[in-house]
Amino acid sequence: MTQFATAITKADALKFYEDMLLIRRFEERSAQLYGMGLIGGFCHLYIGQEAVVVGVQSVLTPEDAVITAYRDHGHMLACGMDPKGVMAELTGRAGGVSKGKGGSMHMFSREKNFYGGHGIVGAQVPLGAGLAFAMKYKQSNALSVTYMGDGAAHQGQVYEAFNMASLWKLPALFIIENNQYAMGTSVARSSSVPDLYVRGAGFGIPSKQVDGMDLFKVREAAAEAVAHIRAGKGPYLLEIKTYRYRGHSMSDPGNYRSKDEVEAMKTNHDPIQNFLAIIQKDYTVTESEIEAIETRVKDVMKEVVEFAKSSPEPEVSELYTDILIGE
């Protein structure tokens, strides 16, 4: 048991398990609906990475803002957005959180402080710094969490944002979710250094590498980072090492890595199974409690899929709305 595990209650443990399981089941159903032709275009699944977003979210407050790139379904569920609205956006329906006009990569929620959902690799990082800038400007105690992948870590604007965030001591938590492949290119083939967290040092940003397959470790590191930021000491960078089980997007056959590698991760490092084993042992979580959660998630997903299938397509008039405010 890690040090931080002691600081969570059994109720917390059950909640984190349920949050991760919901993301996993949501993504599995997304893949199914994609296969059935109900979801179009790009669809990037989060399966395997669940402990990252659930662990980080567990140390945030509702006032904190979250922004990420296009592998965003898990982040939205972790922020408390209605999974029905997210799935209906995937199916391009009027009941989607963007009224069907955004799609998988472009969803937002003012209510839940989720600022997207961005399709341009790395562009969300200056935006996230801007969220933090606004928080500091308004003298709020909130912070922004900006997620990016290991691929985004090579975009120049990421470092422009790091520089300004550190220069102005912005309340910004930057997270590189290193799932080890930027589409089909491994970190070894794209990065001049094996570790990405070291890139914070050049900007005076304290940085750490974390095992992203272990929710307790993610939570502990995130708590430390958040404490640093809330103390007014400026940004913090976490490189969270994780793994995506599926392809980059639905159209990716995944020829750049071996089946054995993927199977080994699934078998030995699954974040949900690992977490379950720990909480069964340390929190005396029972089989019936697990079953109750599984049933609840199953029921939620049934409703979610039903809604996403039955919600109508957007009205034709929606083509010309939401282009400018006040017109």
Binding site: A65, P126, L127, G128, A129, G130, L131, E160, M164
Partner: peptide, 15 residues
Amino acid sequence: MGFAGLGVGAGFMGL
């Protein structure tokens, strides 16, 4: 690119 994006983020936040 950095400060244009940072400005847009601040704009999303209501500044």
